[in-house]
Design a protein around this nucleic acid. Structure first.
Lengths: 187, 187
DNA sequence: GTCTATAATACGATAGAC
DNA sequence: GTCTATCGTATTATAGAC
C-alpha cells in the first residue's frame, strides 16, 4: 500500500479517536497528515465514508494483533485481561485521555446513520472478540461461553474507555480491570 | 420553563441519542421540534453548545429519576440492577437500537473538544452514579465501595449500550445484565 | 418572541490542467 | 499522482424589522 494512502488512514484513525468521525473534516486530514491535497479522492474515490471505514478496519487489525501478543504472555485469561487493561490505562494516561481506540467513538456515532463505517466497526470488533474468545477456549471454556465472555469483556472495556474519557481520570478503567478480574477468576 | 424551550431541548436530546452531537444541526432541531426559527438564539444565546449541554442535563435528570424508581422496586441491588438492564434492553429493542441514552453518544464525542457539553455529561453521570451508590449503601456496602460499584455498574451499562448499538442486537446488553448480576450477587 | 435575510465560514465532492 | 479552482450545499451565528 502507498505511503501516502496509509498515512491518510492513520491520521483519520487518530482524529476519530480524539474527536469523533463527524467532527473530523477532510481538510483537517490533509493538514495533519501532510498528504498531498490532490491525492485524497485519487486513493479514496468513495470519499469520507471510505476513508473512515478503512481507517477503522486498519485500527481493528493493529489493536487485535497487539491484544493477541499481550494475552499470550499470561497463563490465565483473567490475569492476561487484567494486564491488558492496566496497559490500556497507561496508554490512556499518556495520551491525556484522548485515546482508547477509534472504535469507541466511531461505533456510537455511526450505528444509525452511516452504514459503511458501522459495518467496519462490526468487523473490527469481530477481530478483537476472536482474540478474547481464543484465550478463553485455551483456558478450557466451552465455545459458546468463550464467545459470550469475550463479548462481556469487550463490553466492560468499551464502557471503561467511555467513562475514563468523560471524567478525564483512569479510575473507571482501573475499577473495570479490578472487578473484571475478580469475576473472571471466580468462574 | 417555556414550552418551546423544553421542546427544543428534548429534540436535541433525541437527535444526540440517535446520531450524535456533531452530526446534529440547528436547522434539523428547528425542523424536527417545530419550534419557531427565530426563537433558537432567543432562548439559547450560547448557541449549539448551550443547547447541547442543557439537553444532556435534562436527560440526566429524567434518567436518574426513572432509575431511582426502578431500583426501589427490588430488595437487593443485584436484582434491581438486573431488572433495570432488562428494561433498558426492551427500550433499545423498541427504538430499533437508536437509543440507550444521549449520554453515551455525547460523552465520547465531546470529551476532548467541547468543554461545556463534556461538563454536562459529567454532571449527568454524577446524578446516575448517586442513585446506584445509594442503592448499594442501603444494601449494606460501605460508602467507598458503594461509589466504586456504582461506577462499575455504569461502566458496564454504557459498554453494553455501545456494543448493542454497534451490532444492532440486544445480545451484548443481555450478557451484561446476566454477568453483572452474577458478580454482584457474589459480593 | 418571532420573523427574514444574510454574514462568514466550512463542508464534501468534482473537473480539468499538468 | 498531484495541482488548483470551484460548485453546491451545509454549517453556526448575527442583525434588524416587526
Amino acid at each position: 500500500m502507498s505511503e501516502v494512502r496509509s498515512k491518510i488512514l492513520l491520521t483519520m484513525a487518530r482524529l476519530i479517536e480524539k474527536q469523533g468521525y463527524h467532527a473530523t473534516g477532510l481538510n483537517e486530514i490533509i493538514r495533519e497528515s501532510g498528504a498531498p491535497k490532490g491525492s485524497l479522492y485519487y486513493y479514496f474515490p468513495g470519499g469520507k465514508e471510505q476513508i473512515g471505514a478503512e481507517a477503522i478496519l486498519e485500527a481493528g487489525k493493529i489493536i487485535s494483533e497487539r491484544l493477541r501478543t499481550i494475552l499470550q504472555q499470561e497463563a490465565t485469561a483473567a490475569t492476561a485481561i487484567y494486564n491488558f487493561l492496566t496497559g490500556l490505562t497507561e496508554n490512556v494516561l499518556a495520551t491525556q485521555f484522548g485515546l482508547g481506540s477509534p472504535l469507541t467513538t466511531a461505533s456510537v456515532e455511526t450505528s444509525m446513520t452511516c452504514e459503511a463505517v458501522n459495518h467496519a466497526c462490526q468487523d473490527a470488533f469481530e477481530m478483537i472478540l476472536a482474540v478474547f474468545k481464543e484465550k478463553f477456549v485455551q483456558g478450557g471454556f466451552a465455545e459458546v461461553q468463550s464467545a459470550e465472555l469475550a463479548m462481556y469483556v469487550t463490553t466492560v472495556i468499551e464502557g471503561g474507555i467511555l467513562m475514563s474519557r468523560t471524567y478525564h481520570t483512569v479510575e473507571p478503567l482501573r475499577l473495570a480491570a479490578r472487578h473484571l478480574q475478580a469475576y473472571l477468576s471466580s468462574l
